[in-house]
Design a binder for these strands. Structure first.
Lengths: 214, 214
DNA sequence: CTCATAAACTGACCATCGTCAAGTTTGGAA
DNA sequence: TTCCAAACTTGACGATGGTCAGTTTATGAG
């Protein structure tokens, strides 16, 4: 619904790039990622089927740009959650906020989320995309680094894997509609996510052995 | 490489169903899920382009059958990990084994794993597929149920969500090649998975408050 | 205002895809 | 043997993605 078609009679669209990205999101929501078609995107934007080429190159380019936009929003969502924290929030609270930001992004942008990790649809060599992805990843790593500055590399990896995997898996299962009625009603999903992040944070906390540093 | 082409001259293939499913796996491994084509599968099986129809109906039918096979293998992998446990293994060990079985499946069958959760490619009304999925889910639920028989429904949901999400997310990120060098070398991936499951199990264990019941 | 150049977009082309509606072969039951 | 149902082939249809030459519009220099 959000895609802005070209004004009747005008030759230039004016914001075709944006309109095409919106069309991608729209189609993913309506009929799934598989149904996204260059021609259908063009149709919704009110332009001919090859109008996308100058902007994105080919279909892969369109998807990659869409995924890059997703990464940017993901980073912003996590950083917003961190910024909303009270000033003196500790490391555990920051980790939890990062996780909530991740989940909030996936919930608010299901189309982006479903597409951005389908690596077979993306041009992994695209520089803009790589930069955005690394930006998102850096936020995750920072959230973990601040938590356990003295942990060993291997333990650090395990905790990062657990945190990222749990949050990512939750969003994936939810976005793909797996999990059935486990988290279908929205209210229940939010509550489950909240509880899950709490459990998760306690699991990532420094184990009793290592002093509760920084 | 595993797909068996039709014998020269023969009209009947004899095992076309299996050959087509093998072709799907082969193509997913080589070029990703997006590259799977009915015609390409038929080509590899050495039959004509529409030979799949009697067996699977349409493309969606082929994918759904492939996903159902994946679910069956997933269930088997988890049950095998449980069966390999020493006789007196406790609830936590059973939970960890289920998780390891899940991860082992995804590692041994990356093509199945990547396809079976892409709900937009599947016929969700297919009865055989639904039955297999529920079978897999039942194993997960059983692993959690045995762990915290007295926990509240909400807490139970959170733990199931955490366990399933973490393991699933780990497999997804790994299968899609996200996570970069976090778990790329195989040895490191195995070790990370092992550590992660250990962390995860401790997070799902009954909290100190509730007695460590049977 | 006029005009030239760059960008945006159109329309037609080809190979490929999924599906359908015929035919043809095969294996097995009667 | 005869015959049928299932397995497979063939050929055709509309739709898709990628490409390219050509046309229209916007922009900026004079």
């Amino acid at each position: 619904m959000s895609v802005t078609p070209k004004a009747e009679g005008r030759h230039h669209h004016g914001a075709l790039r944006r309109a095409l990205l919106d069309a991608v999101a729209e189609i993913v929501l309506e009929r799934g990622p598989e149904a996204v078609t260059l021609r259908e995107c063009a149709r919704r934007a009110g332009v001919s089927h090859s109008a996308a080429a100058p902007h994105f190159g080919d279909k892969r380019g369109l998807f990659t740009a869409f995924a890059a936009e997703g990464s940017r929003r993901l980073t912003a969502s996590m950083e917003a959650a961190l910024a909303a924290l009270p000033p003196g929030a500790d490391a555990l609270a920051r980790l939890a906020a990062t996780g909530r930001g991740y989940i909030a992004f996936a919930r608010a942008n299901p189309a982006h989320f479903r597409l951005m990790f389908r690596t077979d649809l993306l041009d992994r060599t695209d520089q803009a995309w790589r930069a955005e992805m690394q930006g998102s990843f850096a936020v995750l790593e920072r959230a973990m680094a601040v938590l356990a500055p003295r942990a060993g590399a291997r333990d650090m990896r395990a905790r990062l894997a657990l945190a990222w995997s749990a949050v990512h898996g939750f969003c994936t299962l939810r976005a793909e509609g797996a999990g059935g009625d486990l988290w279908n009603p929205d209210a229940r999903a939010a509550e489950t996510a909240e509880d899950m992040v709490a459990l998760l944070v306690s699991a990532c906390a420094p184990s009793p052995g290592e002093a509760g540093s920084a």
